[in-house]
Design a protein around this nucleic acid. Structure first.
Lengths: 209, 209
DNA sequence: GTTAAACATGAATACTGATTCATGTTTCGG
DNA sequence: CCGAAACATGAATCAGTATTCATGTTTAAC
């Protein structure tokens, strides 16, 4: 219930009751935006789900877009940390890619609301959306460069590769996580791993897969 | 002006005047939706741009969503044909991938409206959006299978690969076509081509790039 | 326990914009 | 040229909802 406590929010509550109410609103907003989309979602819908009065919303948020942006910022961090946790300690970059894709598909499957909200941010809060992927891409690029420095993968074109790999992940997450969540995420990740391994290393590697 | 004539439209005009007015509305809607997004776009905005009266809109379209869907269907076909034309006659699959990506980035750069409209379809007309990418993926998969049958690329996982490659194209198109359209599309495509070549063929091929 | 700040309330406000419709005008086959 | 169908018009209708605000209640510091 209190998963948002770390956020710098528009109107910080000063009492325990206030923090609880704000957290209820954010939880409710996740469901309302996730189910109905930004424009069909209503403040009345959010406050009804949170079981507070309509006016209470404006005690804690500037308006509809403000709470949406708060959710985007929160879920951006959450998604990155879920992936990061999963690939920590991977023996090499190709394994990291496979585990990251698996984590991404599973996360999308478990939290479809989050993916709808981030996707809609492209049009509702374009700057936040772009910042999200730029941060992701920067980290990716750094990771790829480190991997090539230690001889894990070939050198060069890390920036373009980072965006290409992110796009791969997003679309596979959409297709196999959100649209047709039947196939095990690990199977999809394994199927793609060969492509990524050859693509990044330029030769077959029998030590992993 | 008459680029929509092939479409099966909700209310087919019966006279030359009618066809011209409907085409003006579709052209105007492309700009209105492309610049302001689906929800901020207004029917009044469309009819003003088309230089017709408000009520005229409803002579030709059921409503706001109907004209949006007509645009999505039209641009889906257009995008596919632009890519298809570019890769016809490519000597091998890897070259086709490179030319396709180049075409995609250039097309996104030249027609940002189209890409905003298709992107928003994800939330405004999810079925149309999904159908668009499913069609794309099916064609892609067929192409990959044909390529592996003739020994161009490795066998296996054509479905997953199709979605991965589409995701790559979309994100590179977004990054280098829409957000930072400075780098030549051919350079980006060349940078990624090595990754795709190794990934699909599993060994260096010195005959092309 | 007092009290000032923080929080909660929901009816009222204010505005937007999609869609309808009754009425005129143009087209085109005959 | 005539008439019926097609097309054009824009004021009026209709619905929905984001945001405000005046008022009442709870919290927590002292």
């Amino acid at each position: 219930m209190n998963q948002y406590s770390c956020l710098t929010l528009p109107k910080a509550p000063r009492t325990a009751r206030g923090r609880k109410t704000q957290a209820k609103l954010l939880d409710a907003a996740e469901v309302e935006f996730g189910e109905r989309g930004f424009h069909d979602a209503s403040i009345a819908g959010i406050t009804a789900r949170a079981d507070v009065a309509l006016g209470t919303f404006y005690v804690y948020f500037e308006g509809k877009e403000a709470i949406f942006r708060a959710l985007v910022a929160h879920f951006s961090r959450l998604t990155r940390s879920v992936i990061a946790e999963r690939i920590v300690g991977a023996p090499d970059r190709v394994t990291a890619e496979r585990l990251g894709l698996e984590a991404f598909i599973e996360h999308a499957r478990a939290h479809p609301h989050i993916y709808r909200i981030i996707g809609e941010a492209q049009f509702v809060a374009p700057d936040a959306y772009q910042a999200y992927y730029q941060t992701f891409a920067d980290a990716y690029e750094t990771g790829l460069k480190a991997a090539s420095a230690r001889g894990d993968i070939r050198e060069g074109h890390a920036e373009e590769l980072a965006w290409a790999l992110i796009g791969m992940n997003v679309f596979l997450g959409q297709r196999y996580g959100l649209w047709n969540p039947d196939k095990p995420a690990a199977d999809v990740a394994a199927a793609i791993s060969e492509f990524v391994a050859y693509g990044l290393k330029g030769q077959r590697d029998r030590s992993q897969a």
